[in-house]
């Protein structure tokens, strides 16, 4: 039997899940059992969950070797036959990580527009002026509603004291 690139990926992912299951079960041995517990203790559920994961991931692997591969679902926006677009994914990840890193020091009103702009790039937007405009307007509206009206705390960052 010859494995396609896709089923190799499926196999690797299933293997990873199998490893996770084994890890969960092994790590369960390190959970301290408190003196007070008289019945099933804190290790029961880890054993159950890890065991189920080992069985199910193992079963998936067996299925794969029998040729039962599952193709990703198609949608009107996505096409599984496309090659993995590493550039776009990198831009997306950078936008998200950038948001997380910049949120506290620079504030929501800097971090969110930057992230939004990056995300627009990642999803293939082209018109720069529209991108820039929406990237600024939308986060400001969100800020006004959630932070200023409902009082949900969003970091002010560089605008601290001004707003």
């Amino acid at each position: 039997m010859k494995l396609t690139a896709h089923s190799k990926g499926e196999l690797a992912f299933s293997g990873l899940l199998l490893a996770l299951g084994i890890f969960v079960v092994i790590e369960a041995a390190l959970i301290p059992i408190p003196l007070a517990s008289s019945n099933v203790g804190p290790r029961f559920m880890p054993h159950f969950a890890g065991g189920l994961l080992i069985l199910a991931a193992g079963w998936t692997i067996i299925e794969l070797f029998r040729g039962h591969s599952v193709a990703p679902e198609e949608s009107e926006l996505t096409d599984p036959t496309q090659r993995f677009n590493a550039v776009r994914v990198a831009i997306l990840l950078a936008s998200v990580i950038g948001f997380a890193v910049l949120l506290d020091p620079l504030g929501y009103l800097i971090a969110a527009p930057l992230a939004f702009f990056g995300l627009l790039l990642a999803f293939g937007a082209r018109r720069w002026w529209a991108m820039a405009l929406v990237s600024i307007v939308l986060p400001v509206l969100v800020y006004l509603f959630f932070a200023k009206t409902l009082g949900i705390y969003l970091p002010e960052g560089v605008f601290a004291g001004i707003l």
Partner: peptide
Amino acid sequence: TLVAVGLLAT
């Protein structure tokens, strides 16, 4: 609508 709600709640 969003803005209207915002104003009301403010």
